[in-house]
């Protein structure tokens, strides 16, 4: 195990985790490109390491969301049934296709994330009364300042289908899947943004367990890459939360947009054997 390589891996994972934490995307979107483009790690090994990092990030970061009541536990378990199955399918696809295909696909997903982020589409959700119809017993509430925000998730069918798709993407690319799940939960299922982000952040840890298991079975979890990355994620997750409190993330969106588009283009070019 080379010390300088381990430090670089931990540093890259930390940078990915800080960015992911500040943008609410999770670190996986940044970790795989940084590992493959900057450090020359095999893309499938990078995806395996990223899946373990997503689990770490979720296990460490869920405390804040659970403490504040942002996680809708019942909804998470329902949606997780299709997400977990999707992640297993996605991971099996990832092991069957070429590394360049995965690089190209990840490049497209990063560009999509960048444009979604800059567009900033989110819907305000009105609080419902305590006796609102709730056939699936999914009503949840949390405190926001002095008021209680209460909501009942809708369109569970759409949620289950998109969660399955998010699981496939997560399994293929080692990302959390929040990129797909958060907008769907907010815009279609009617969850307030905080509840959508909190529930998704809690779910991605479980999703990535399935991904990590498939990559482990294929010998693609490399301890020399994964262990330093986990340490980087642990540090980055805390640092990201601290920086989010200090800086207004909306002021940095332009910078993040440029970084993400740059990474996306680099991944797509790398898929065609061209580097920047």
């Amino acid at each position: 195990m080379e010390l300088d390589q381990s430090i670089l891996l931990a540093l890259s994972a930390m940078i990915g985790s800080v960015f992911g934490s500040m943008l609410g995307l999770g670190g996986g979107v940044f970790i795989v490109p940084l590992f493959t483009l900057w450090l020359g790690v095999d893309p499938k090994v990078a995806i395996g390491a990223s899946a373990v990092c997503v689990v770490t990030n979720s296990v460490v970061g869920s405390k804040r969301h659970l403490d504040n009541g942002f996680v809708n536990f019942r909804l998470a378990t329902i949606l997780q049934s299709t997400t977990a199955a999707g992640a297993i399918i996605g991971a099996l696809i990832a092991l069957a296709v070429s590394a360049n295909f995965l690089k190209g696909l990840l490049g497209i997903v990063i560009m999509y994330a960048a444009f979604t982020m800059i567009r900033g589409s989110k819907k305000g959700v009105e609080s419902v009364p305590p006796d609102a119809p709730d056939p699936m017993n999914l009503m949840n509430a949390y405190e926001d300042g002095n008021e209680i925000v209460r909501y009942v998730p809708k369109r569970l069918d759409v949620g289950l289908a998109t969660s399955g798709f998010a699981g496939v993407l997560s399994g293929m690319l080692g990302i959390g899947g929040g990129l797909v799940q958060v907008p769907v939960m907010n815009l279609i299922m009617g969850l307030p943004m905080r509840a959508a982000a909190g529930t998704s952040s809690f779910m991605v840890g479980m999703t990535s367990v399935a991904t990590a298991a498939v990559f482990y079975a294929s010998g693609k979890i490399d301890p020399a890459v994964t262990a330093p990355a986990m340490v980087g994620v642990l540090a980055g997750s805390s640092l990201g939360s601290m920086l989010t409190k200090r800086f207004k993330v909306s002021h940095l969106l332009g910078l993040f947009f440029v970084v993400m588009v740059g990474l996306g283009i680099s991944m797509i070019l790398s898929a065609f054997g061209k580097g920047i």
Binding site: T77, I78, S81, A84, I88, M206, V209, A213, V214, A217
Partner: peptide
Amino acid sequence: FTALVALILSLSILVAFLKG
């Protein structure tokens, strides 16, 4: 529901351990 998700994930881990 929770047991079902636990079962899916446990099976994936079990198969991984058996293959690994």
